[in-house]
Nucleic acid binder design. Structure first.
Lengths: 218, 218
DNA sequence: TTGCTTTTTTACCATTTGGTAAAGTGACGA
DNA sequence: TCGTCACTTTACCAAATGGTAAAAAAGCAA
């Protein structure tokens, strides 16, 4: 317990899989402040485009103080990415093999679109990372995303084989759901130019539901 | 179809008519070297993530030499973006009001997908710029993209009103075409993890044609 | 309060990076 | 051959940026 600051820090910075992390109230509050500020800045400017000074200003803390809570810029980014991956998988995980196929897929589209609307910063953080070639997420994609996609792709393929939805390549279907929903968050700057009247999401929801229904209806 | 796309690309990629400047052979060659190197580096790392040293190394020139041809990093980026905008508009411009509606839209999807395959760097450069809020492209979007989208959206709306395609929100349709086609270039790192077997584009072409046909068939 | 641990601030540093000045090299017409 | 202009290199610099050391301040258990 000697050198408690550094010991506690090292433990706190371990991968999230380690559940035993006792944090003081101050630590909890400031780590949250920092991660929220970092999400704001990283999602708006990318990893290289973001500076610790910006994150510090956004969090209302000093730069050295931020480095007291996180080992470095990279660690903050990786921590965000790890948390994000869980959030990202959730809507797909909810797709129920026991449900009505078409409704399950439509509901998945709905959840993804809701997420793009509610969490555009997260969507952009993710988009930035993938655009740069997933330099800090490659293993995570392989270990967490791929198995889930494989599983759900098999499920969709089974639905199609049973004639419960129209024949379709399940992986490309998933890609098209991701692409169309995240587009409204990631390309918001462009969407806003082309559809200036506020509130693009209701129309998007209607459109996407129609599109995937027409496509998958038997 | 691919030939047509490439021809259009070559036309669109011409340097835009700046105030008439006649350039020596060396200028022409080196400006091209620099812009190609910059496309490589900017598309891979974003504006802030790219350095003049990287661009110089990629171009095989010295950094000061690069600054002899361009005023600065920003100028190089803006030059690329301006050229890119023409490239970007071209496939949509080719959509023919006199053609068969469904086939015209499918052909547009095809051209966009061919572009994502043939020019992924350009797609990523554009995606990066929009993700960051289009800081250097906002006016261009307003002045060049918006009028064209307005025009083609009206055309698609007219086709739908005449019952020649299924009823659809034309702008959301265009968004979904952009999103699904560019996804294969912009999110290549993720696609490669989930579909490791080489050559994702043939399957993507089949899938997207099916999807938009089912959706728009009357 | 006292004594300790945790948290924050102050004052730095080394490297990277966009950019410049000026000297040098080369091409080419008169 | 010479002079001029176009191009390239060398040697820099100032600002920005990620990060550190150490002292000061704030919590907190006794």
């Amino acid at each position: 317990m000697k050198n408690a600051a550094k010991t506690g820090m090292a433990r706190a910075l371990r991968v999230r899989a380690e559940p035993v992390v006792k944090r003081s109230r101050i630590q909890t509050r400031n780590r949250r402040l920092i991660l929220d500020a970092a999400l704001e800045v990283f999602s708006a400017h990318g990893f290289r485009g973001a500076t610790l000074d910006q994150i510090a200003a956004q969090a209302g803390l000093s730069k050295p103080n931020i480095l007291y809570y996180f080992d470095g810029k990279e660690t903050i980014h990786v921590t965000l990415l790890n948390q994000l991956m869980e959030t990202w998988l959730d809507p797909l995980e909810q797709m129920d093999p026991q449900g009505e196929p078409l409704e399950e897929i439509i509901a998945y589209v709905r959840r993804k679109l809701d997420m793009a609307q509610a969490y555009p910063r997260e969507s952009r953080l993710f988009a930035n990372e993938i655009l740069q070639g997933a330099p800090r997420m490659g293993p995570h994609l392989e270990a967490r995303l791929k198995p889930l996609v494989d599983e759900k792709a098999a499920l969709i393929a089974a639905w199609a084989a049973a004639g419960r939805i129209a024949p379709v390549d399940p992986r490309h279907l998933i890609f098209s759901i991701w692409a169309t929903t995240q587009h409204y968050a990631d390309f918001e700057a462009q969407v806003n130019v082309l559809m200036p009247e506020g509130g693009v999401f209701p129309g998007a929801g209607t459109y996407l539901e129609t599109m995937f229904r027409r496509m998958l209806k038997v």
